[in-house]
Design a protein around this nucleic acid. Structure first.
Lengths: 128, 128
DNA sequence: ATTGACATTTGCCAATTGGCTAACTACAAT
DNA sequence: ATTGTAGTTAGCCAATTGGCAAATGTCAAT
């Protein structure tokens, strides 16, 4: 209702926090940022300043660079690192996605693709 | 008087601007940031947000990374992202999975992770 | 059902950011 | 000297951030 746009950095932060797993309070403790603020960030009611972003990077296991990029504060690739990203087909693989998926066993990775394929065919049939 | 501490990012920004040389107004035009704000930043009365910092990087000939570091938003050297690609954490990303996913738009890639997260939490709750 | 212990969300508010506009400050050229 | 003009600074203010404390939600154990 309040926040139709699910495409904020908070979504990623929350997924990462849950997967660790950490509570908001624990993260708040480690990062030295108030839990209430973190909560609002996760649900997109606030947007973390660079200062806050930096504080939470390590506790969440992100590199500062990576997090700044995900938050849209740094453009996706600084020239130096640009060429290292593999380009399969036409698009690029989101580094965060790669990172999360690679922590899953191969069969889960494949299963994910299976689900994606199913969703595509469902979407296609609804289209008609 | 107001600002005894000369050790702010503004000092660097001003030196760079002068050396180009650019006026505040010209920089304001290129960066799409108000000249008054830029002026205050240069004399340390305001501190640029990540958003503003990003806008002025190119016009001043800085790399975004560099500027964020100078401003103290990024620690001096984040370990290079090179070489981290093949192994995130302990696992590897299946090349086929990478290829399929990378052809999807970023929001779909993210959605996939969202689904994975949900499945994990479902699995966990069934576990108990 | 109730209690207790955590976890999350909300209400409130001080502090900061950043834009707009109106002063001020050079410094030329008449 | 005076006017013009480009550049910088200051006053004001709406919007945003982020902390604290209180309210609310969650859930296991009685």
């Amino acid at each position: 209702m309040d926040n139709p746009d699910k495409n904020h950095i908070g979504t990623i932060l929350k997924q990462q926090r849950i997967s660790l797993p950490l509570t908001l309070q624990e993260l708040a403790g480690k990062a030295e940022v108030s839990a209430s603020h973190l909560g609002r960030i996760e649900r997109g009611e606030r947007f973390p300043s660079a200062h806050i972003l930096r504080k939470i990077a390590a506790p969440l296991g992100f590199e500062e660079n990576e997090l700044f990029t995900l938050a849209g504060y740094l453009s996706s690739q600084s020239p130096r690192t640009a060429e290292r990203l593999p380009t399969y087909g036409s698009g690029q693989l989101d580094p965060y996605v790669a990172r999360v998926l690679s922590q899953e066993p191969p069969e889960v990775q494949r299963a994910v693709i299976g689900i994606l394929t199913m969703l595509r065919s469902i979407a296609k049939s609804m289209d008609k």
